[in-house]
């Protein structure tokens, strides 16, 4: 039992640092770049994704013996899309401001490769409880990464943090950082810093070699 407990804790913590989905495994780049013009948006997106990830991981792992292997990809997609519709309703009803600022990227959680990747790699092979822990860990890791990105971009780009105006920095904000170009730049620098700190080589290439979803998409990026 004791051993069981430690393994659950491991499932939870691995997503936060060691296998951080965004900064180490380089998954789910689109929302990471798109919604992080403010730290709060980053947290909102992270939590919404965590909700979908938790729901889809639990359902998929509960149904893993029922879903035939051949149709698993469409089945997973439908389960994920249902949870995205659900979170869309919840946000629209309770946090309309966040719903508006996330806009179309809320719908696009459906095709976030973190969620599909966890379904394919973890939930379809493990039990319900382990999958739930895995989802929460990955979700926290994703939320933290988005929060970090959002903070850097908001502080440098608009001289604010969580909506609070900062002295000195807000005098001459570098607008470029809240523009698309600043998103690419910030993410590049953060990944470089993570490389330096962890001192190990995360996947160098964003192609099939480094991508854990390679099997699911038929290694399509590998071509030629």
């Amino acid at each position: 039992m004791a051993e069981n407990k430690t393994s659950l804790v491991k499932e939870l913590t691995k997503g936060v640092i060691k296998e951080n989905p965004t900064l180490v495994m380089l998954l789910g780049m689109c929302p990471t770049l798109a919604v992080t013009t403010q730290a709060l948006n980053g947290i909102g997106m992270g939590l919404a994704t965590t909700f979908v990830l938790l729901g889809s991981n639990i359902v998929i792992s509960a149904l893993r013996k029922v879903i035939p292997d051949k149709v698993r990809i469409p089945a997973f997609i439908v389960i994920i899309a249902s949870f995205v519709t659900l979170i869309g309703f919840l946000l629209e009803g309770f946090v309309p401001s966040l719903y508006d600022s996330l806009g179309i990227y809320l719908t696009l959680i459906t095709v976030n490769c973190i969620i599909f990747g966890r379904a394919e790699m973890f939930a379809s092979k493990n039990g319900v409880i382990a999958s739930a822990f895995d989802a929460v860990g990955m979700g926290i890791g994703f939320t933290l990464a988005l929060f970090l990105m959002g903070s850097v971009r908001e502080i440098i780009g608009s001289g604010k943090w969580m909506g609070i105006t900062l002295p000195v920095l807000s005098d001459n904000p570098m607008l470029l950082f809240i523009m698309p170009a600043g998103g690419f730049f910030t993410l590049g620098v953060i990944i470089a810093v993570v490389n330096k700190l962890t001192n190990k080589k995360p996947p160098r290439e964003i192609g099939c070699k480094g991508c854990p979803n390679a099997e699911a998409c038929g290694k399509a990026g590998e071509c030629k």
């Binding site: 470029l176 523009m179 170009a181 690419f184 590049g188 620098v189 470089a192 490389n195």
Partner: peptide, 17 residues
């Protein structure tokens, strides 16, 4: 440290500019 993905992202940033 910048080899690979970080350099690619920074290049993408310049193309985006």
């Amino acid at each position: 440290t910048f080899k690979g993905v970080p350099a690619t992202l920074i290049a993408a940033s310049i193309v985006s500019v």
